[in-house]
Lab assay of single mutants.
Amino acid sequence: RGFLEKAAVKKMAKAIMADPNKADEVYKKWADKGYTLTQMSNFLKSKTAGKYDRVYNGYVIHLD
């Protein structure tokens, strides 16, 4: 289950990176699912340092 969630989160993160207008909708879905910042950090780990920082930081702001 965790692997599928991670894959889904990364897919949506890539969608945000391609079209930032989708961010609020995606952040709301993640918040509704109760994803914590720790979970998001783990889901968005990448071999490329900083690749998903913008998405993660946007989610931090959304939760605030």
Rank of each mutant, 00 (worst) to 15 (best):
Y56S: 02
K51F: 09
A7R: 15
V9M: 03
L37E: 06
T38V: 14
K14Q: 14
P20M: 06
V26Q: 05
K45F: 08
K22G: 06
N21L: 11
L37P: 10
N21D: 11
T36F: 03
L4T: 12
A7D: 09
V60N: 03
W30G: 00
Y35Q: 00
T48N: 09
G34H: 07
T48W: 08
R1G: 14
V60H: 10
N21C: 15
G50T: 06
A31R: 08
D19G: 03
F3W: 14
A49V: 12
A18M: 12
W30V: 00
N21F: 10
Y27F: 07
A15S: 09
L63S: 02
D24H: 10
A49Y: 08
V26T: 08
Y35T: 02
D53T: 06
G34K: 06
L63Y: 03
W30A: 01
Y56M: 10
A13S: 03
K28S: 10
V9I: 10
F3C: 15
G50V: 03
A13E: 00
R54E: 15
R54W: 14
Y59Q: 00
T36P: 01
D19T: 05
T38C: 15
I16H: 00
K6P: 06
A8D: 07
D19F: 06
L37Y: 04
N57W: 15
V55C: 03
K11E: 11
K28D: 06
N42K: 12
Y27V: 01
D64I: 15
T48I: 10
T48S: 10
V26H: 03
Y27L: 00
V26K: 01
E25V: 08
Y59A: 00
S41R: 14
D19A: 06
E5F: 05
T48A: 10
Y59C: 02
L4F: 12
S46N: 06
R1C: 15
K45V: 08
G50K: 05
L4I: 11
D24Y: 10
K47R: 09
H62M: 06
Y52K: 01
A13P: 00
A49W: 07
R1P: 14
K51T: 06
T38E: 15
Y56N: 02
K28F: 04
T36G: 05
G50F: 05
